[in-house]
């Protein structure tokens, strides 16, 4: 199983990536105009009160020293204290991570659930009206911004039909499913459009491939050839496509959480930016960056598993 050896040394290669990300987020966050102490204390306050807050959060130190503390905290497994909420950023994130995870994973699952049968129908009946319809829908789907689609879905299913709640997250399991269906559908549909086009193209290529011809020559019926030999081979490029899109999904979750008022990390990030809560912003950004890196790592493992030719 030495094809999986990269699992051991890949994390080491990731260290410089994470260092780079931490520097960039740290600098970017601090380049937002405005002063966190002023935001916290409001317009009518004294210079000494401002100075106290700055001192409390180390904001009066030179930038390089602030970065040093930030990294030192990272090694202790901490992300600092929120200026606004006065609690550990890590604790704050822990309470916000579930809705975001549900949103991202739910969107990917929904997208796969929609895209696989659509691509299969389109590829197997190439040139039929079903194929044309699916191609038109998926091409149109690429052009719709996620927030626009979200508003349309809310108008139709929540306001008009009353099937789903407009906003919020819910408490019990089914309550959460109920609340998260529309948000997941919003990003899921946009992703499904990309996936459908991509999968259809690779399925069409695989249907014409020599290995599919040889499978037919063995007397395997068309449906069998399709699901056993065409689909597995066309999924290989799709895994990569999904990994590439994970960054887009995470940034999309910021928009979707705002539109649907979901108490997730995206919402936390947006509030952090408006209140100049440096610690929250750089904490969430670090978590997002790590998640993206982790997903790509998992995608590599998946690729090696489904395609025996790949060596990493």
């Amino acid at each position: 199983m030495n094809r999986y050896r990269f699992v051991l040394y890949r994390p080491i290669q990731l260290i410089p990536v994470l260092v780079g990300i931490s520097v960039i987020t740290f600098v970017l966050v601090r380049s937002i105009p405005g002063d966190p102490a002023r935001v916290l204390l409001g317009p009518r306050t004294t210079e000494s009160a401002l100075a106290r807050v700055r001192e409390q959060f180390g904001l009066d130190e030179p930038l390089w020293l602030q970065y040093f503390y930030f990294v030192k905290n990272l090694f202790k497994g901490e992300l600092g204290k929120s200026i606004l909420y006065k609690v550990d950023v890590l604790k704050l994130i822990a309470t916000r991570i579930e809705p975001t995870l549900v949103l991202v994973i739910g969107s990917v699952l929904l997208a796969l659930l929609i895209a696989t049968p659509m691509a299969a129908i389109a590829a197997r009946r190439r040139g039929s009206w079903a194929d044309h319809l699916i191609r038109i829908i998926s091409t149109a789907g690429l052009g719709f911004p996620a927030f626009w689609l979200a508003i349309m879905l809310i108008l139709l299913f929540s306001v008009q039909l009353g099937w789903f709640p407009v906003t919020g997250y819910g408490r019990t399991f089914w309550d959460k499913v109920h609340h998260m269906t529309l948000p997941c559908l919003t990003t899921g549909l946009a992703l499904a459009a990309v996936l459908t086009r991509n999968l259809r193209a690779s399925m069409l290529a695989e249907l014409q491939s020599d290995q599919a011809t040889a499978a037919r020559a063995r007397g395997l019926p068309e449906t069998f050839v399709f699901w056993r030999h065409v689909v597995p081979n066309s999924l290989v490029p799709t895994v990569n496509l999904l990994a590439v899109n994970i960054g887009w999904l995470i940034s999309g979750s910021v928009v979707i959480e705002t539109v649907f008022a979901i108490p997730g990390m995206g919402q936390l990030l947006v509030r952090g930016i408006f209140t100049r809560d440096y610690m929250v912003v750089q904490g969430v950004a670090m978590v997002f960056a790590c998640a993206t890196v982790l997903v790509n790592f998992l995608a590599d493992i998946l690729t090696v598993t489904i395609d025996p030719r790949v060596k990493l």
């Binding site: 007397g219 597995p232 025996p308």
Partner: peptide, 18 residues
């Protein structure tokens, strides 16, 4: 398959790689 089998010039592309 049961009565007529077929083999090709390029086995690399005529076998399922995965």
């Amino acid at each position: 398959g049961r009565r007529i089998g077929m083999i090709f010039q390029n086995p690399a592309s005529h076998l399922d790689p995965v």
